[in-house]
Simulated scan of single mutants.
Amino acid sequence: MKPTLLQVLYEPQVKLPIAFEYYWQLLNEMEKSKIHAQALFILKQNGRLKGTPAFFQQALHEKFQSILYQNILMKNQTDRLLCEFERGGLDVIPLKGTSFSEKHFGHIGARPTSDIDLLIKAYDMEEATNIVKRMGYAQKEKQAPNHFHTAFSKELPGSEIPLTVELHWDLLKKDTANLEISEFWKEAYPIDDSVYVKQLSDYHLFYMICLHGWRHNMVSLKYFIDIIQLILNLNIDYKRLIDDAKRHKTKKRTIRTLSIVYEQLPILQSINEFTEKIPTLYNQRNSPIKKYADFIDYSFLSFDSPKHSIIEIYHMLSSKY
């Protein structure tokens, strides 16, 4: 049985196949999730890149170069925005982005960044919007009352795709969870010599990344790799995580997400044991019936409160009409 991509990346005891066809399949799988750069740096760090065919290595390096140029631009644009927030005296936390790539993958270009996500405080929304607009970004959409972020964009010279900035005042819809975003702010700390530009604590970064993966139903391997990298790099207190998730009514979402990750890479149990498991249908997603059942489970059954499930059903129905 051929190893999965996650096994190739993270299980050094797994023997690398020699058939070229297998590596073409890996490249096709990477293309679906745009994870060439992550794969390149993880294979390098684990000393396994040289054990792969030359054409495979070249393909990863070529993809990495384009991601590197994009991320350098993203870092420049992010830094300019953060300087304006610092100058304006507004608290802000960059979410993911190039700093996440540098810290947890080892290089600014090791993880693609497609937009700029900033967490602000809800009462600073008007002033934050003014800062973003002064930097040349136009609001793309009206601020939805039941949502937790709004997007702005601007055209960049030489780029067909506009640059998007998302201002977040929360991480989940307020009426489908009891998440206390103030707890994330309380443990955040300043970046370098700044006063207002901050970063999440390691613990809340992990919590946020898990919720982010859940919101996208773990449809891409990039969500797996983000979570796995943090499990490897950080010592997460799972008891605290589950206790907090219980208070925040995000327990099912958190457990479901981590259950899927640990199912796909059981070696993680030897790094940080996770016992709060629930059955998932991730392995059967190729079956149309199981794929539909997985969607129902994700969309409506991964809420801690029946009330939150009903509200989510209402949101979904109202968005279609």
Rank of each mutant, 00 (worst) to 15 (best):
F100C: 00
A110I: 03
Q269I: 01
A245L: 05
T4D: 14
S259P: 07
K222P: 06
Q269C: 03
E273K: 11
L6P: 03
L9G: 05
Q269N: 15
H147T: 01
L49N: 02
K249N: 15
D175M: 05
A138M: 12
L81G: 00
E183S: 13
F152H: 03
T176L: 03
F274I: 04
S305E: 15
L156D: 03
H248A: 11
L81D: 06
L5Y: 10
E155M: 11
L167C: 00
Y292C: 09
L241G: 01
L317T: 06
I18Q: 11
Y196V: 01
G97D: 04
Q13C: 07
I191E: 14
Q284E: 13
G88K: 14
K251T: 07
I161R: 13
F148C: 00
G88C: 11
M30P: 00
F206K: 10
M125G: 05
K239E: 15
T4L: 10
V195A: 08
I255K: 14
S302P: 02
W24C: 09
P145E: 08
K174F: 04
A122L: 10
K133G: 04
D124M: 07
D243G: 04
R253Y: 09
I289T: 10
F100S: 00
W185D: 05
G47V: 09
K251F: 12
S318M: 15
F100P: 00
